[in-house]
C-alpha cells in the first residue's frame, strides 16, 4: 500500500496544456474517485500516475519515490481498463496469471494467488473458460483479478464500469467497494458517472478543464459545492440554478439579481398551503412529470427557465397545470453571479 502524491502536475501536448499544475494526495488505503466531464483531464491524470503518459511538469510520488521517469512496471501499480483488456486467446486462469508473468514467484505461489483471486471474485467455476464465454461483469472481474494477484501498492481504475448495463454497474459498484474494504489497497478511480463517485468514494476529486475544482468526501461536495459547475455536476437530477437577489434576508427569484441561487430538486418541494416565512416559493407551468415510485419529479417553467421540483409519489400534477414549489432557506445555495463561486448557505 502507498500514498500517491501529485505535486504541481502538468501535462501538455505540444503547446496545448491539458493539466494545469494540480496538487493532490491520495492517502494510503484511500478510495479516491476522479470525476468530471469528458476532456476534463481525469483519465490523463490517471495515465500519468500509471506511467502510460509522460509527465510534462511537476512530480508524481508513489510512497516516497518520485516515479516520473519510471516505467509502468516499476511503479508497482495495477490498472483496470474500461474495455477490460483481457486477452481473448487466453483462459480466465491464464489472464489472471498474466499479471504475474514477470514476477519471480514460484509456480505454487502463482497458482495459489490465481485461485485465491478467482475465489474472492466468484470466478472459480470459470477459470478454464475463454473470455468470450463470460458476461460483461465476469470479464470485468477477470480484469480486476489480474490486477489483484500482483498485490500492488495501488489500483488504478479507468472507467471500469462504463461498458456494463445499469443493473450490472450497480452490482459491480458494490463489489469493488467491498473489495476495497477487504484489501485496504489505495485506489484511484476515474469515472464520468457522478453516481459511481458518490457511492464508492472515500473522497471525490471534481475536475474540469485540467483543474481540480474541489476535493472532499462525497457528502461534503454534495452539501457544500464550491461553484456552480460542481453543484450541477454532483447530484441527480442536477441542481436548479436561478438568478436572484436577497431582500430582508429572504431569497427572491429575480432575473436581474446579482446572485445565483442553487436548489436541489429534492429540496424544492411541490406543496399547497402557506409558505414558511423564510422560504423561497416558485410558481410555474408544469411541462413534464417523471414518476419514480417513491417520489415524482415535476418539471415546470419559471418565466422561461426550466426548474425541477419533487412531489410526493401519489400527488402527480397534470402537465399544463400551475404548481407552486417551496425551498427552505437553509437549503438554498448562493453563488456569485459573475464568478459562479459559492457564497455558502444561510443556515
Amino acid at each position: 500500500m502507498a500514498t500517491i502524491t501529485l505535486d504541481k502536475l502538468v501535462k501538455s501536448y505540444g503547446k496545448a496544456r491539458v493539466i494545469h499544475g494540480i496538487d493532490l494526495e491520495v492517502r494510503d488505503g484511500e478510495f479516491v474517485v476522479f470525476v468530471g466531464p469528458s476532456g476534463c483531464g481525469k483519465s490523463t491524470t490517471l495515465r500519468m500516475i500509471a506511467g502510460l503518459e509522460e509527465v510534462s511538469g511537476g512530480e508524481i510520488r508513489i510512497g516516497d519515490n518520485v516515479v516520473n521517469e519510471l516505467d509502468p512496471k516499476a511503479r508497482n501499480i495495477a490498472m483496470v481498463f474500461q474495455n477490460y483488456a483481457i486477452y481473448p486467446h487466453m483462459t480466465v486462469r491464464q489472464n489472471i496469471a498474466f499479471g504475474l508473468y514477470t514476477t519471480k514467484l514460484g509456480k505454487e505461489e502463482k497458482n495459489r494467488r490465481v485461485e485465491e483471486a478467482g475465489r474472492i471474485l466468484g470466478l472459480t467455476p470459470f477459470l478454464d473458460r475463454r473470455p468470450a464465454a463470460l458476461s460483461g461483469g465476469q470479464r470485468q472481474r477477470v480484469a480486476i483479478g489480474r490486477a489483484m494477484v500482483r498485490e500492488p501498492a495501488a489500483f488504478l481504475f479507468d472507467e471500469p464500469l462504463s461498458n456494463l448495463d445499469a443493473q450490472l454497474r450497480a452490482q459491480m459498484r458494490i463489489e469493488i467497494k467491498a473489495l476495497h474494504h477487504r484489501l485496504g489497497t489505495t485506489i484511484a478511480y476515474v469515472t464520468h458517472d457522478q453516481v459511481e463517485a458518490m457511492t464508492m468514494a472515500d473522497r471525490i476529486v471534481v475536475m474540469r478543464d485540467g483543474h481540480i475544482l474541489q476535493s472532499g468526501p462525497p457528502m461534503e461536495i454534495y452539501d457544500d459545492p464550491v461553484d456552480v459547475f460542481t453543484a450541477r455536476f454532483i447530484g441527480t437530477p442536477s441542481m436548479n440554478i436561478l438568478p436572484g437577489r436577497e431582500a430582508d434576508g429572504r431569497a427572491v427569484a429575480d432575473g436581474d439579481g446579482g446572485l445565483l441561487f442553487g436548489i436541489r430538486p429534492q429540496d424544492l418541494l411541490v406543496r399547497e398551503g402557506a409558505v414558511a416565512a423564510d422560504a423561497l416559493e416558485l410558481t410555474g407551468t408544469v411541462t413534464a412529470v417523471e414518476p419514480l415510485g417513491p417520489e415524482t419529479l415535476v418539471h415546470f417553467d419559471l418565466a422561461g427557465q426550466p426548474v425541477i421540483a419533487t412531489a410526493p409519489a401519489r400527488a402527480v400534477p397534470e402537465v399544463g397545470s400551475q404548481v407552486s414549489a417551496q425551498a427552505a432557506r437553509s437549503e438554498i445555495h448562493r453563488f456569485d453571479r459573475k464568478t459562479e463561486r459559492s457564497l455558502g448557505r444561510r443556515r
Binding site: 500509471a50 481498463f81 483488456a85 514477470t102 480484469a143 489480474r146
Partner: peptide, 21 residues
C-alpha cells in the same frame, strides 16, 4: 486496442514480449 498493450506494459512485459505474446 491500445488498452491490451498498455495492460501488458503495466504487467511488466517488455515491448518485444508485448508484440509476441
Amino acid at each position: 486496442p491500445d488498452d491490451f498493450l498498455e495492460a501488458a506494459r503495466i504487467d511488466g512485459l517488455n515491448e518485444f514480449a508485448i508484440w509476441w505474446r
